[in-house]
């Protein structure tokens, strides 16, 4: 008590309290924001029938009984197996909550067989982009540097040069690519999910797609030659670090110099 009483007029106390309050509010927000809804799963039969059953139960309310689309969801005719696989496997569909756009969620509702069944059903309605084969996704011999050029020409405008994602209009965004698998990259390019335009095999041949996959994989695994990479978000992150850490350290040193020794 005496200790506190003697020091409560110290100007540092106000700063300390402020910091504490900030940390408390931030921590509280993080705790609330990270709460995720838990989901359950079901089982399977022959693929298309099973897919239809699953579709009618889980998708038709928005996409329509005949997958023709409603006011709440676009038509699925012609989107192909690749689109279904991409949307459902990444947890973007079924939609968790209405919002600017569907976000990828770590826990999917459907297991792999069920997703395959759904994809088979939707693909059976109208032809569309199929899922990639293992050969499509093999980018071992791809030209990484050419992939970089293609990435900067076609992808960096939305996903940012380092693949960290970027903002679009009205709260929509191009997601971060750091956890994207080559399969997801391929599916996204051929199907154009949500806001993303389609990069067809005719204008961006499979060879070029593989080069892009190789480059993005390179970005994902890249080391940072210059030290801590600050999220590779560019000058804003650098500026923030400058003021909060570097400049703060220099001010700290100046204060230390100014304090009389005991």
């Amino acid at each position: 008590m005496k200790f506190l009483a003697a020091r409560r007029r110290n100007p540092l106390v106000a700063i300390g309290l402020l910091l504490f309050a900030l940390v408390a509010v931030g921590g509280g927000y993080a705790a609330i924001a990270s709460v995720q809804p838990a989901q359950a799963s079901a089982s399977s039969q022959t693929q298309v029938d099973e897919g239809k059953r699953l579709y009618l139960a889980g998708c038709s309310s928005c996409h329509g009984m005949e997958a023709q689309g409603t006011a709440n969801g676009p038509t699925l005719l012609g989107v192909g197996a690749a689109a279904v696989d991409f949307q459902v496997a990444s947890g973007r569909m079924p939609l968790a909550a209405p919002g600017a756009q569907a976000a990828a969620r770590p826990t999917g509702i459907y297991n792999d067989d069920q997703i395959a069944a759904l994809a088979a059903f939707v693909a059976s309605l109208a032809p569309g982009p199929a899922n990639p084969t293992a050969e499509d996704l093999n980018f071992e011999n791809a030209d990484v540097a050419q992939g970089g050029v293609l990435f900067r020409t076609n992808c960096a405008q939305c996903h940012q040069a380092a693949g960290q994602g970027g903002a679009l209009t009205q709260g929509k965004y191009a997601p971060n690519l750091m956890a994207a698998t080559p399969r997801e990259m391929y599916q996204a390019m051929v199907t154009g999910p949500q806001s993303m335009p389609v990069f067809s095999d005719a204008t961006l041949p499979i060879k070029d797609k593989q080069a892009i996959m190789a480059y993005v994989t390179e970005l994902q695994n890249a080391s940072s030659p210059g030290g801590l990479d600050l999220g590779r978000l560019g000058p804003v992150a650098e500026g923030l670090f400058l003021w909060t850490a570097v400049f703060a350290a220099l001010i700290g040193a100046a204060v230390w110099i100014g304090i009389k020794a005991r």
């Binding site: 076609n154 335009p197 389609v198 990069f199 067809s200 005719a202 204008t203």
Partner: peptide, 11 residues
């Protein structure tokens, strides 16, 4: 023209 699907983008 047929190389470019609806929703497609080419630089």
């Amino acid at each position: 023209p047929e190389d470019l699907p609806v929703g497609g983008l080419v630089s």
